[in-house]
Amino acid sequence: MFEELLKHPKALLISVLAHVVIIAAIVINLSFTDKTDMTKVGEVTKTIKAKVIDQNQLDQKKQQKELETKRKKAVELKEKQTQEAKKLEQKKKIDAQKKRKAEEKRKAELKHKKEAEQKRKKEKARADEKRKAEEKQKADQKRVAEAKHKAEQALVAEQNRQAEEKRKAEEVRIALEKRKLEDAKRKEDELKRKEDERKRAEAEQRRLAAEEQKRKEVELKARLEAEQNQRRLDSLRERYKLAISQKIDRSWIKPSGNDETPPCEVNVVQGPGGIILKVTFGTCNGSTAIYRASIEKAVYRAEPLPKPGDPALFERNLKIRFKPE
C-alpha cells in the first residue's frame, strides 16, 4: 500500500490538503458559533445606608407614647359618661309623652265601639225581614221547577226507550246481513281454495312428468356414454393384450433341436411400469423344459411390458396364450 502511495505523491498531497481544509473549516466555524453572550454577574447597583441607634432613646420614646395614650383614654371615658347621662334624661321625657298619647287613643276607641254596636243592631233587624221574604219566594219557585222537571224526565225516558228499540232492531238487521255476507264469502273462498288445489296438483303432476322424462334422458345419456366408454376400454384392452403377447413373441428365440412347440398358457405377474415379478405356466401339454425355459426367457426379455392406453386397464396378473408360429 505504501509503495503505491509513494509512487503517487500527488495523491497523498491532495488528501492531506483536503484534510487540512476540512479541519480548518470545522475549527473556524465552531469558533464563530461558540461565542455566546455571557451575562455580567457581580455588578452592585444600589447601596443601603446604615444608622446607629441608641437603646435609651428608644426606651424614653416608648414611655412617652404610653403616657400619652393613657391620658387620651381618660378624657375619652369622661366624655362618654356625660353623653350617657344626657341620653337617659331624654329617654324619660319621651316615655312620659308616649303614655299620655296612649291614654287618649284608648278613650277615643271606646266611644267609637259603642257607636258601631248600635248601628249593627239596626242593620240586623232589617236583614231578617228581607231574608224571610226571599225564603218564601224561593220555595214557590222550587215547587214549580220540580213539576216541570218531572214532566221532562218522563218525556226523555219515553224517547230513550223508543230509540233503544230502534237501535236493537237495527243491530239485528246488521248482524243478519253480516252473516249472509260472511257465508257468501266463505263459499267463495272454498271454491277458490278448491280451484287452487286442483291447479297445484296439476302443476305437480306436470313437474313430476318433466322430471321423470329428464331423468330418463340423463339415464339414457349416461348409459350411452358408459357403453361408449366400455367399447373404448374393450378395444384398448384388446390392443394392450395384443401388444404384450406380440412383444413376448418377438422376444422369443426358438430353442435348437426338434422339440415340439405346442401352445402354452403363461401366467405373468407384473409390477407397475411393466416390471415382471413372476412367471408361471398353466396348461402346457406336451412341452419340454427347454421350451418352457425359452418362453420364460422371452417374457423377461420383453421387460418392461408395454403400457396400457388407459391406466385403468393395468392388470397385475396377466394370462397370456403363447403360440409360436
Binding site: 500500500m1 503505491e4 502511495l5 503517487h8 495523491a11 497523498l12 491532495i14 488528501s15 492531506v16 483536503a18 484534510h19
Partner: peptide, 17 residues
Amino acid sequence: LLGASIFSWALMYVKWG
C-alpha cells in the same frame, strides 16, 4: 484515525484514477 483518513483518501484518489 487522522492517518487512516488521509491514507484512505489518497488511496481512493489513486484507485479511482
